[in-house]
Amino acid sequence: MSEQFSIFQSRPSRLHALHPVTKLVLTFCLLAAALLLPGLWTNYLLFALAILPLATLGQVTGPLLRAVWPTVLPFAISVFLIQGIIYPHGTPLFSLGPLTLKREGLLLAISGTGRILMVVSNFILFALITRPDTLMLSLVQRGVPGGLAYIVVASIQLVPRFRARAAAILDAQHARGLETTGSLRRRLSAIVPLVVPLILSSLVDVEERALAIEARAFNHPGPKTSLIEITEAGWERPARWLLLLTVPVSLGLRLWLG
């Protein structure tokens, strides 16, 4: 198995054993709830009562928190500084020198941070418990075109190779005396000698790969066999429909309670 650009963690858990489409539906419903449900603290509650128990079930709480923290913190700081303090016309809560914390800005910052926390942790949980190739295979079995599955799986496998190549080009240009630190102008002029070689070198093997997959009957219309087998428990299908019912419920609560 080649190295994959994915944070997937293999665990012998019941969450991991779910069918990929069930995981996808679960992620979608949680995302809809995070974006639709009204209330100041709703998203923090969702995080505590849905994401954390699911992560515990999947034995990925540690990796989840380690991945969520560095993404959410800069957003949280920005949103508190910008909305909390610079909110134009609000009720002042307290002042520190020229800075005044406004009530409306603080409320906006609390709900904003909650939404970011839910969106980010939801995606990360999905990535931790789902293997990209089994996900795409399960979608192909449900009628998604094989070309689309090829695009997704191939990009996921290409990214680590490309990032290594980008780092190598950066090193090579450094060795030739290219400056990538210092003034903005100097860093700007470093873009072309980095970007153009990376793209040209990666386009070289496009043609070769196109011939290779055509020679392996990629465009053949008939059914194909796969190396991976996906299992699905009998209760998962009705469970997915029940999960999907939460989306109109979220929308209804939003319209009803504002």
Partner: peptide, 11 residues
């Protein structure tokens, strides 16, 4: 397309 996606992410 996958090459382009990898280019987007790497650059």
């Amino acid at each position: 397309i996958p090459v382009a996606i990898a280019i987007n992410i790497a650059i």
